[in-house]
Design a binder for these strands. Sequence first.
DNA 1: CCATTAAAGGATT
DNA 2: AATCCTTTAATGG
Length: 231
Amino acid sequence: MSRLDPSLLAALPPFSGMERDALAAMLAGAKPIRQPKDAYIFRQGEDAHAFFLLLDGYVRVVKLAPDGEQVIVRFIASGELLGIAKAIGRDRYPANAIAAADCVLLAWPSRSWDAIVAANPGFATNTYAMVGNRLLDTQDKVVELATERVEQRVANAVLNLARQTGRQTDEGTLIDFRISRQDISEMTGTTLHTVSRLLSNWETKGWIKSGRQRITLVDSRTLATLATARD
DNA sequence: CCATTAAAGGATT
DNA sequence: AATCCTTTAATGG
């Protein structure tokens, strides 16, 4: 793969406000890579040799508990950075990153992080804002795990996925990659059985359509009220 | 209200 | 055919 047009990147949040020349210079240090679905992009505990920009596809970020249990921390959609251990002063990746669909990424060596940040204050503030937003997201998730019932948490997870990756079809909003009940249980701290029961219950009520590894939101409005219902 | 266990059928490779 | 995903039911915290 030869050259990418800097203007394609200029529209992405991490690079907003950057000059064309600076963007081109930064791009020159990047290496495009592709990863098939289910491939590891990096592993928890591994030396953080590179950071990445996801150009196309979806990435699942998974934290491994000491007992081998997995928790899905977040999904990354195209246009987002990942593996930026250096930005938070770490030299090892804190989690596993796995391609949730076929992916195209740009990779920069981590050793170039300091120089890039020094040369591009706009890029630096954009990444700090992104790190801050992710922190707020996980704080919200802690509150959610501590206070909400399983049905609300699952509704929230599904709504967030649809918001992040939704594609409109004639039936409703389709979550744009394969996602199993197991995956959703790992996002919401419950079991795949409970997720399965909830989803089939919602389907009989006509709120969603679901099949093997796919979910379509038909009535996201009532799902949203379910997600925020207080008692 | 929810997790666990078990069993069975369907889908995918 | 082997493996993975989903559903359903029963039981118990």
